[in-house]
């Protein structure tokens, strides 16, 4: 019983559960709502927010987990989104460490920038693994729209990440 409770209290267990919830939103709601014909990427936002919430190291691992969940529903090679999302989370955490006095808008700005980089890195990674026809000028439109959306929703998502990745409660 203790082992189960310990497992449930693990930060990555919570992250997987939160990730599954976001993934279901990604494959249903945000799959249908396509402003400017662009599919919004809440999974990428989750990865970037993990980096913002817990720093670059923990964020990279969390981003990897989130990316791996996303990989399971895509037809692209398994591990590709995981690598890109880990890098995005790391970049978000790393960039935010340079901010002297963090504000909500500075975090939004970092999440937005990291998301844009992620949306450009993804097609490059697809091309490296053999996909063709994905490196077009359309990726800049995609990056712009996704970055704008992720800037708006980064604050609430970061709060969710902060809760999911919080340190375990001290022993009583």
């Amino acid at each position: 019983m203790d082992a189960i409770l310990q497992f449930a209290e693990n930060r990555y267990t919570r992250l997987v559960l939160v990730g599954l919830m976001f993934l279901s939103l990604q494959t249903t709601l945000f799959n249908e709502m396509r402003p400017f014909n662009v599919c919004l990427q809440v999974m990428l936002l989750l990865a970037a927010s993990c980096g913002l919430a817990k720093g670059s190291s923990t964020g990279a691992v969390a981003g990897f987990v989130v990316g791996l969940l996303y990989d399971f529903v895509l037809t692209t090679p398994l591990g590709l989104c995981a690598a890109v999302f880990a890098l995005v989370a790391y970049l978000a955490g790393f960039a935010h460490s340079f901010v002297h006095e963090s504000t909500w808008w500075s975090r939004s700005l970092v999440a937005s920038g990291a998301s844009a980089i992620g949306m450009i890195l993804l097609p490059i990674a697809f091309t490296v693994t053999g996909a063709e026809g994905v490196l077009t000028l359309h990726i800049f439109v995609v990056a712009l729209v996704v970055a704008a959306f992720n800037a708006i929703f980064s604050v609430p998502v970061e709060m969710v990440c902060r809760w999911a990745l919080r340190d375990p409660a001290p022993e009583r």
Partner: peptide, 12 residues
Amino acid sequence: LTLTSVLLITLD
């Protein structure tokens, strides 16, 4: 993480 990604991509 990089090594794990490369391993997974290769396997897939």
